[in-house]
């Protein structure tokens, strides 16, 4: 949770022009590059999957159920005889899209929360941070049930349920640097010239917190995909027959010793995608903000 801004004098003296240094540092670390490549590949497959898949992802064929991997079906077929590879490709946009939009939601709400808390300080800060603690402590599954029960099942509501999970973390993450910046001269100067609260928050406080937001955003996408799959495991995920990966994995788990491809294919796909985002996030952290700990 502790963070020292990159301007710390003890920091590596070599990285004089900040941007170029960051970029160089990112590319020096191979795992970061690998993460970037994995992520880019997944994004490409997602785009591809929106237009073409080897088979229509929803076409059931009751005579071809649970077929093992073959030339015709490289990842085999599921219990309805649907081509697993096609479903994974078509499902990419649901899984990745869900991860992306859920974290965007969490980051937007959480960052504003954290900045506002730091800016107002005092009693407001105290109350709002305790509220964040409580939201953090609140069992996520209860929240998910409530959201799905009140709003009904569906992709959007799963996004909301997953997004809510990351709000308090973003709030805490942003509040720290913003709080530190509040004591800096330029913020006080802005105040002195009569800048409004909203202006100070958006112009001065949010940018200070941007590096951790970017880093955490990337790392959190993976977590969101995992959370969505956990919700599917608990039966609270997207509705069938949406080929979202977590739902495929949860539905396939019964076949673990019968037709392992139903579990392994989505399981490994999720792991790989999340691994990509995590490696990329790690690399970004090293590059942008080496001392950030999240």
């Amino acid at each position: 949770m502790r963070r020292v801004p990159p301007s710390d004098p003890r920091d590596d003296a070599r990285r004089a022009p900040a941007a170029r240094g960051s970029l160089a540092r990112f590319f020096r670390r191979r795992t970061a590059v690998a993460g970037g490549v994995i992520t880019a590949t997944f994004l490409a497959v997602t785009l591809l999957g929106m237009w073409v898949t080897p088979y229509p992802p929803a076409a059931a064929d009751y005579n071809q159920t649970l077929a093992p991997p073959s030339l015709a079906h490289p990842m085999g077929t599921d219990d309805f005889g649907r081509d697993i590879l096609s479903r994974l490709m078509a499902g990419a946009r649901y899984s990745l899209g869900m991860g992306l939009s859920a974290v965007t939601l969490g980051a937007a709400v959480g960052s504003l929360w954290g900045v506002a808390s730091a800016f107002h300080g005092g009693f407001f800060d105290n109350v709002s941070m305790r509220a964040a603690d409580i939201l953090f402590a609140f069992p996520g599954i209860l929240l998910a049930i409530a959201i799905v029960a009140v709003l009904g099942p569906g992709l959007t509501n799963v996004v909301i349920a997953v997004g809510v999970f990351s709000i308090p973390t973003f709030a805490r993450l942003v509040r720290g640097p913003a709080l530190a910046a509040m004591g800096q001269e330029y913020v006080e100067a802005a105040r002195a010239v009569g800048a409004g609260g909203a202006r100070i928050m958006l112009r001065h406080l949010v940018p200070v917190a941007l590096p951790p937001i970017i880093v955490y955003f990337t790392l959190r996408i993976g977590t969101a995909i995992l959370t969505a799959s956990a919700l599917s495991f608990l039966g609270l995920g997207v509705q069938p027959p949406t080929p979202e990966w977590g739902a495929m994995l949860a539905a396939g788990r019964l076949f673990i010793n019968v037709a392992p491809q139903l579990v392994i294919a989505p399981g490994v796909t999720i792991s790989l995608a999340v691994l990509g985002f995590n490696l990329l996030g790690d690399g970004l952290r090293d590059a942008l903000d080496p001392r950030l700990r999240v």
């Binding site: 191979r30 795992t31 690998a34 993976g222 995992l226 799959s229 956990a230 495991f233 977590g246 994995l249 949860a250 788990r253 673990i256 010793n257 579990v263 399981g267 999720i270 792991s271 790989l272 999340v274 691994l275 995590n278 490696l279 790690d282």
Partner: peptide, 24 residues
Amino acid sequence: YCSTVLSVAGISTPSFFLGLVLIY
């Protein structure tokens, strides 16, 4: 690099998937 990938893989795997694979 190897240990980075290994440790990150741990946090990247859905826990029920990992758990069931370990059981089997």
